[in-house]
């Protein structure tokens, strides 16, 4: 697993605040659903593609954004052919490509840490299921910290079951895996309590400092290749 999709370059798009970029994406996403003029859409698409070189990125990066969607888009195109005129089929595909490219552009030009900050800010007013924004931020860093550890456990479980000839048996693999996760949760939560407990629901200066540190850290590699065998 690689650290993140962020590609570091010095461009105005990289420097643009994450919040602004996301706002633009939201506007684009809403606006584009009202546009069905093929030429306008084609123009928007070319603009999106051109933004990649503008951000000092190679065009293959743009291609990589849409590549995973190739088959689903082909299926969609065919489905559209049966239900309406050819132009409609193109409109849908163009809209999707524009949005995916724009979103992908944000992903590759914005540090994970900057996106985390925006996420935290967006979540502040909503306290989802009793999960305040600082708690949410803490939980997110907890996940990032434990992905490599859990990956290690997954590997241990797999090796143990391979030794018994059950290397692909879903039950032999997942049941002990889940059990180890729950058991580990017990110990991790004891450790957190022993170290003073969860961060306060409202941010204290110390927590703010900590979450700034988190922001700096997520751009560091998280799951080393060796922890995630394929």
């Amino acid at each position: 697993m690689t650290a993140s999709f962020y590609i570091h370059k010095e461009s105005w798009l990289h420097r643009l605040a994450a919040g602004r970029k996301l706002f633009c994406l939201a506007v684009l996403g809403t606006g584009i659903s009202f546009v069905s003029d093929l030429w306008l859409l084609a123009g928007a698409l070319s603009l999106c593609v051109c933004l990649f070189p503008a951000a000092q990125l190679r065009l293959v990066v743009a291609y990589n954004q849409v590549r995973p969607l190739f088959w689903i888009m082909a299926a969609l195109f065919v489905a559209k052919l049966f239900t309406g005129p050819l132009s409609d089929a193109f409109v849908v595909i163009l809209r999707l490509c524009i949005l995916v490219l724009a979103a992908g552009l944000i992903t590759v030009t914005t540090k994970t840490s900057a996106l985390l900050t925006v996420l935290e800010r967006v979540l502040t007013p909503l306290s989802v299921f009793g999960f305040s924004a600082p708690r949410m931020a803490f939980a997110l860093s907890l996940v990032i910290r434990f992905i490599p550890v859990v990956g290690q456990i997954s590997q241990e479980v797999r090796e143990a079951q391979q030794a018994r000839g059950l290397g692909t048996n879903i039950f032999a693999l997942i049941i002990p895996f889940v059990l180890r996760i729950v058991k580990m949760a017990e110990q991790v939560s004891q450790a957190i309590d022993a170290r003073g407990g969860l961060p306060d629901a409202k941010p204290s200066p110390a927590v703010m400092r900590r979450s700034q540190a988190v922001r700096r850290s997520v751009s560091a590699p998280m799951g080393a290749e060796t922890d995630q065998p394929h």
Binding site: R145, A191, P205, A206, R209, A213
Partner: peptide
Amino acid sequence: NQIVLPTVEEDLAFGLSRSDLSA
């Protein structure tokens, strides 16, 4: 099981995050 944050420095600071200490 007791290192709870992604990097060394921030994990250490975690144990003091509930305290009233200044940054």
